[in-house]
Nucleic acid binder design. Sequence first.
DNA 1: TCTGGGGTCCTAGGACCC
DNA 2: TCTGGGGTCCTAGGACCC
Length: 476
Amino acid sequence: MRDDASIVHVDLDAFFASVEQRDKPSLRGRPVIVGGTGLRGVVSTASYEARAFGARSAMSTAEARAICPAATAFLSPRFEAYRASSLAVMAVLRELSPLVEQVSIDEAYVDLRGADLDVSSTAHVREVLETLRRDVADATGGLSVSAGAASSKMLAKIGSDLNKPAGITVVEPGSELGFLAPMSVRAISGVGPATAARLRTFGVETVEQLRAMTHVDLVSIFGERHGHSLHELARARDDRDLTLTREAKSVSHEETFERDVHDRAVLRREIERIAQAVSARCEKAGVFGRTVHLKVRLPDFSSLTRSSTSPTPSRDADVIARTAQRLLDGLDLAQGVRLIGVGVSGFVTHAQSGLFELEAPVDTPAFPEAVGESSTAATPSSDDADPDADEGSSTLPQELTTRFSPGTTASWRPGMDVHHDEFGAGWVWGSGRGRVTVRFEGPLTPKGPVRTVAVDDPALTPGEPPAWDDAAAASP
DNA sequence: TCTGGGGTCCTAGGACCC
DNA sequence: TCTGGGGTCCTAGGACCC
């Protein structure tokens, strides 16, 4: 914890609804609900006019319709518009200080220690926040933010929430313990409904009461990490720094059906559609994932998850779909299905694939020669370098065969067979194009014994897998 | 009037290796 | 002959956040 209030949390007020009211004057002053408008939709954001009637985020749209007046506008989200405004806000924050952690589309932390500013007095910090509010409004056509400044992330965030909307709160350094004491445990980051309910069984509802619980008890009840963090945060001990860069760890897409689905054929088709969306987003992000996840929500709202990890990173829609469909086959779906989702994680970026190639031993016998021109260690896979080189490209072979040498195993996608004999030598064989990933049996790189090569070389032998012999392996 | 969709992180158990 | 931990990877589920 710092001795100055130099950590700022900025939060846009009723963000989605405010953008709608800004862009459509007829909505100003009226209750606006942005969210899912279908049978099973939920509210993303309610304008303050709608909140007056009790509408809230995460409430079902049906319930919001029931409690809001007839003049209420129910709108589907326009994410492109929100992203554009979000970018404008983040640009304003980065002008203030380069140390910005964007938490979500409508929220960010700013570290004023990265700015050339006097943060020694609360009055000065308050002025900085007032200016920031005006700058955001100017840059976005009038959007409103709330901001909190404090000596830690948790207190800055509590501060930004305290006087919403358009509120500014500076938590005086030194006053943190007293500031926090009367608050609900829900104010603490990481305390949601389940933790709060559990604490209530011990008679604990406020932060002050939480402080009476021992570290040993909290850890035994909530586990090592969570218990420790409750103990520390209750005492305002929060040394978390801003996370300035973050890499995505998973990509997923899920959809709730308007009515529960009982037909597996429908589910398999949905998986295909969703896998295509996930694949496209992986491509956009430039990542390949090793693990495919399937999520199924049942009508009773319980959910099942299954995952499968392959040594071979992929973002191919067919591979993702087939893997997810195979995972689906193992589930009991007698109840029907409410939601289905597919995701990919365990990313290996293109750059990392290149690293593997460069670090692979250059004296591996037989294997590189057998796969042709694009197999040399320094050549990245050419299918990614050329955006036009898709399935339809006429220069590519319809069937390919390639080999790998003793001491390795291999896998090949999409839809190809992998064969090997008892010596470990073998071949992959089938139709299509893509990459071969060879897993060597000894450690080659810090990340693991994986090596990727492109195999879209027309010189590769079509047809039956050849008999293995050293002469053939040595000459492309 | 039943409860979205995008994520992250943690835990626990089993397999496997040292 | 039995008994160890520790570390890593994988899987399933759950809590939490916006």
